[in-house]
């Protein structure tokens, strides 16, 4: 399992691995928003949590179609399926590697980019906390979508359409935590909902992903 994780991280970091794609997209979105909205710092501060969350979610979505498709194309998915590793742990490791290379950099970059959007002071902590809790769910749900569409030519479009509705609850509660945090309200309720969504996705979806992958490999 460690070997698979290390391989995926190595592949992501080497040339052409796509590491930084999500981060660059996130940066572009947050840098451009002030230009399109206009230099009204009060308005920017108000929409900052939502924009940051949406940017992070779309950045995450961007790298999903490579998550299993590359392994499918070069045949290593077949070989992994016949390896001693259960497919459930293979997809979990894949999701973890995706989170480490896409989700975690977004979490770390978010407070820096928050400055560009004039995010109010108390919001930084809750923005990071909500992204830290929410991005693992995005990776796991995304892996499920990637497993559903693996083997389809140009499956990226279908993948986005399948995954977007599943991302909505995470987005709603994640952005709500960041917004309430920024405005100084109690964050407990959306925070618990967000944690619940993450916990449930991480606990259940690997089994679903492995099941659909088995069907797709036939």
């Amino acid at each position: 399992m460690i070997a698979l994780l290390m391989r995926d991280l190595k592949l992501a970091l080497r040339a052409g691995g796509g590491f930084g794609l999500g981060l660059a997209f996130f940066l572009i979105v947050t840098v451009l928003v002030p230009f399109s909205v206009g230099p009204q710092s009060a308005l920017l501060g108000k929409i900052a949590p939502g924009v940051l969350w949406l940017g992070a979610l779309l950045a995450c979505l961007l790298s999903l179609d490579r998550l299993l498709a590359l392994d499918w194309e070069d045949g290593s998915l077949d070989l992994l399926a016949t390896a001693p590793l259960p497919l459930e742990s293979t997809v979990t490791i894949k999701a973890l590697a995706h989170w480490l290379t896409t989700g975690l950099p977004l979490v770390l970059a978010a407070p820096v980019l928050g400055v560009l959007l004039n995010l109010p002071g108390p919001g930084y902590l809750w923005l990071v906390v909500s992204l830290l809790l929410g991005t693992p769910a995005l990776s796991v749900i995304g892996t499920f979508g990637a497993a559903l569409t693996v083997g389809l030519k140009r499956g990226g479009l279908l993948l986005s359409l399948l995954v977007l509705p599943l991302y909505v609850p995470t987005l709603i509660f994640g952005a709500e935590v960041a917004r309430r945090g920024a405005e100084g309200f109690a964050v407990q309720m959306p925070l618990l909902m967000l944690a619940g969504i993450s916990a449930a996705s991480i606990a259940l979806l690997p089994f679903a992903s492995a099941a659909v992958l088995r069907v797709n490999l036939r």
Binding site: D78, L79, L80
Partner: peptide, 13 residues
């Protein structure tokens, strides 16, 4: 141990 048409190699490794 299964060997398919594709070798399952990663070009950047």
């Amino acid at each position: 141990a299964y060997a398919a048409h594709a070798d399952g190699l990663k070009p950047t490794l």
